Simulated scan of single mutants.
Amino acid sequence: MATRLEGARCREVSMKSVTTTPSSKPRLTTSAMIASIASEGQRTKSAPFGHALVELARARPEVIGMTADLGKYTDLHIFGKEFPDRYYQMGMAEQLLFGAASGLAAEGFMPFATTYAVFASRRAYDFIHQTIAEENRNVKIVCALPGLTSGYGPSHQAAEDLALFRAMPNMMVIDPCDAHEIEQAVPAIAAHQGPVYMRLLRGQVPLVLDEYDYRFEPGKAKLVRDGRDVLVISSGILTMRALETAKALADDSIDVGVLHVPTIKPLDTETILREAGKSGRLVVVAENHTLIGGLGEAVAGLLMRSGVHPAFRQIGLPDEFLDAGALPTLHDRYGISAAAVATQIKGWL
């Protein structure tokens, strides 16, 4: 199994590297870990979280940055360079990271604590549960490599983080789509009094939602695109894929609407019920998370309890340990690439 250091280093490997063999010319191979989830030619923005946190901290002296040996790999190093006296490097000790964050919050600080999503959700869950959530401490937990955004195998793939944090009392859960939303989410979660878990896209992050005049609001779902045939209810990078799918299926005269749900908890029940309750549309929930316990089951439960019964399908990761490999291959294999999403939707109509 990969060590954390090896995994962190792999995050910086470029999408393609040159290899040679004694009997062949140099050839290009795809890295198992890709520094960006952006498609070729897609607009991106560098380190939106790190830059947004710096802007927030200039106006909020209580904001501090904390990490567990992953400042560079969560874009927190940008904050550390700007505010070295407010930056805490806690070493490879997530339990210590979150325990200290809770203590600092109790003294009036607002810690933004970063690590990989697997380490927060699996390794330090009890410390977050007991010292942050139960005490309702004002700690913002911001975690990279959510869902299947790492090709480094189960040790680094946080396929179940939303399910775990959804079940934690007092915890707000955010799954942003792109750089535009991350920039807006940072000051918004700072304005929320209480603990927040936010998934993080880092490095060169795609820009998508700025084309739709989108504005992030905690606890609010937004209809980014309307459609008469299908409604995709999505979060995170699957909203990006859903919008790509909608454009592709328009060529087949299939009209796809996209309802972006960045706040997994608390759920915007009013908007979801209104849009899912419109007759004649297939409702598909798409998420970068296991099919168990995430947005799909949250929406399904809401619809059942409310007596709203559209034709309903889910797109998400299977209930299994996922393979290691190149992200484009894995996204196709597990059904969350734009092409795979389009194929599934066409098959259901």
Rank of each mutant, 00 (worst) to 15 (best):
A179T: 05
M198K: 08
L209C: 09
Y152I: 12
E183M: 12
E217H: 13
I128A: 00
C143T: 14
Y212V: 01
N136S: 08
M168D: 14
L207D: 06
I141Y: 04
V118E: 09
F165P: 00
L231I: 03
A188P: 01
M168H: 03
K222T: 12
R123C: 05
I141V: 10
D161M: 03
D126I: 05
G203M: 06
F216W: 04
P195H: 05
A221F: 06
E135D: 06
V230I: 13
L231F: 10
N138R: 08
G236R: 03
Q157Y: 12
V142D: 03
A124E: 04
V139Q: 05
E183W: 09
I132F: 00
C177A: 14
V196R: 01
E160P: 02
L207T: 12
A117K: 07
S121V: 07
N170K: 08
L148T: 06
I174E: 14
L200V: 13
V224H: 01
D175N: 15
R202W: 08
F127G: 10
R199C: 03
C143R: 05
T149S: 09
G151P: 09
R123W: 02
V230Q: 04
F127I: 15
H156C: 11
E183V: 13
Q184R: 08
N170S: 14
S234M: 11
V186W: 04
I182N: 00
A179Q: 04
R123T: 01
M172E: 13
T149Y: 10
R123N: 00
S121A: 15
A191T: 11
V205D: 03
V139S: 10
A124D: 12
A188Q: 05
G147K: 06
K220D: 02
A185G: 06
R199S: 15
Q184E: 14
V232H: 02
S155D: 07
V208Y: 01
M171H: 07
E183C: 08
G236H: 01
A117E: 12
I174T: 02
N138I: 09
E211R: 11
A117G: 05
